[in-house]
Simulated scan of single mutants.
Amino acid sequence: MSTLFVEQPWTAMSLLFRPQYRVDVFDERDTPIAVVRERGGPGLQRPLRYTGFSGWTTFDLDVVAPHGQPIMHIGKRFGRRPHVSVSTPQGQLIGTIKTHSAWKQSLHDANGQQICFFGDIARIETGGRAKRNGRRVRRDVVRINPGVAEPLRSLATACAVAFDVVRGTGTSHVSSGGVDWSA
């Protein structure tokens, strides 16, 4: 089983006022393996990123290795639960992810054929707390089953490293009941 640690800053300011999506990804040996960042800023959608509608906004994410080599691209159009597309750095579609609920996502090949659900091949534990270089981070732990082949491995990884985007939370953790501290 391969384990990924997906981390993002965890402060009151970053939880409430972080308009751009950025996470760092580490393996089980604590080695940095990727950074997920937006290609550009949220632009005109920036005000929505501060609200509970952040998950509705467009996301254009690059997954890059620590030394800067592109690994994959993750994109989501505007809307509540549109498909999230996953492609190679050259733009070739790997597949898509469809969210059915906050905790149920289906993985589809490049032709749109459903392959399986994310939970069939991986487990994710969200909202853990840790320290990285003396700073508090929110840590999601992702375990992908051994032997998962392509394109499923890439789709599962994309789902995990962009889970807040995929499940519709976006960058804001503000909900009608207050702050979503655990997600």
Rank of each mutant, 00 (worst) to 15 (best):
R80P: 12
M1Y: 07
W10L: 14
R123V: 04
T51K: 01
I121W: 02
V174C: 11
F17N: 11
V84F: 00
I115M: 14
K104M: 12
T171A: 09
H67N: 02
I124E: 04
R139H: 05
Q90D: 15
G91E: 06
V63G: 00
D62L: 05
I33S: 06
G79V: 03
V148I: 15
P70H: 00
Y50C: 02
H173S: 10
D164T: 10
A110D: 03
F78Q: 08
V35Y: 00
D24T: 13
F26C: 06
D60F: 01
T11S: 15
L15Y: 00
D180P: 00
P9L: 13
D60S: 06
F26A: 06
V179G: 13
P89A: 00
E28H: 08
G43T: 07
T31W: 09
T3I: 13
R18M: 13
R49H: 06
A34V: 07
Y21T: 01
G177W: 12
G178T: 09
I74R: 03
G128N: 15
R153K: 14
S14R: 03
D120R: 03
S85A: 13
T171F: 02
L152R: 11
M72G: 01
I71Y: 01
G79C: 01
R18D: 12
L16C: 12
D60E: 00
S2E: 14
M13E: 15
V23S: 11
A149L: 11
V179R: 09
A12W: 11
A149R: 12
F53H: 06
G170A: 05
G170I: 08
F5H: 14
T96G: 09
R143H: 09
V179K: 11
L4N: 10
G178Y: 04
A130E: 10
K131L: 13
I124R: 12
D109R: 03
G178L: 13
F118R: 09
S175A: 15
P82N: 11
I115Y: 01
R46P: 04
